[in-house]
Amino acid sequence: MKTQEELTEIVRDHFSDMGEAATLYVQVYESSLESLVGGVIFEDGRHYTFVYENEDLVYE
């Protein structure tokens, strides 16, 4: 099982292909040891929320 830090790095790496991230945040109260819930805000103003669970990243 991966730590939240490892899950955060996986998510950060995925979003790095989409541009320069200004902020990546984790909603600790919705996350667990198995999943990471949060969002990313890019330098150009785009904002996505995400759920990373079971090696699957879903974002909108």
Rank of each mutant, 00 (worst) to 15 (best):
Y59E: 03
E20T: 13
E34P: 11
V28E: 08
F15N: 01
E55H: 12
G39E: 13
Q27S: 13
I41T: 05
T3G: 05
D56T: 15
V40Y: 03
H47N: 03
M1A: 10
G39I: 14
R46E: 01
S16E: 05
E60D: 06
E55G: 15
G19D: 04
Y29R: 00
T8P: 03
M1P: 12
L33R: 13
E43V: 13
T23L: 13
F50V: 00
D56Y: 14
R12I: 08
R46P: 01
V51C: 10
K2T: 04
D17W: 14
T3P: 03
G38E: 02
Y52M: 05
V26P: 00
I41L: 06
Y25I: 07
Y29A: 03
M1E: 06
Y29W: 10
E20P: 11
A21W: 13
G19F: 10
V40I: 13
A22N: 07
Y52G: 00
Y29K: 01
V37M: 08
H47C: 13
L36S: 01
Y59M: 08
L24M: 07
E30H: 11
E9G: 07
D17F: 14
T49I: 10
Y29F: 10
L24N: 00
V58Y: 11
G38P: 01
Y29D: 03
Y29Q: 03
Q4V: 12
F50Q: 00
E43K: 13
D44W: 13
Q4T: 05
M1V: 11
I41C: 12
A22I: 14
E60R: 09
T3H: 04
V51D: 00
Y25E: 03
E5T: 07
E6R: 07
T49K: 09
G19A: 05
E30D: 14
S35F: 14
F15H: 02
D17H: 15
S31K: 08
I10P: 02
R12E: 03
G38W: 10
L57A: 03
E34K: 08
L57N: 03
Q27H: 11
Y48S: 00
Y48W: 06
S35I: 15
M1S: 09
M18V: 05
E9P: 02
S32M: 08
F42G: 00
K2Y: 06
E5M: 09
E43Q: 11
F50R: 00
L33W: 07
E5I: 08
S16T: 08
E53A: 13
H14Q: 05
V40H: 00
T3R: 07
D56W: 14
G45H: 02
E9M: 12
V28T: 08
V26M: 03
R46L: 04
S32I: 08
E5S: 07
E53S: 12
V37H: 07
G39T: 11
K2I: 08
F15Y: 03
L24H: 01
E34V: 09
L36F: 08
E53Q: 13
L24W: 10
T23H: 12
S16D: 05
Y52V: 04
M18L: 09
M18G: 04
S31C: 11
R12A: 06
L33D: 07
V58Q: 10
S16H: 08
S35T: 13
G45K: 01
F42L: 05
T49W: 11
E20I: 14
E20Q: 12
Y48I: 06
H14V: 09
T23M: 12
L24T: 01
F42V: 01
K2N: 04
L57S: 02
G39Y: 15
F50I: 02
D56E: 14
E55D: 12
M18Y: 07
L33Q: 09
F15P: 02
E5G: 06
E34H: 09
Y59A: 04
E53Y: 11
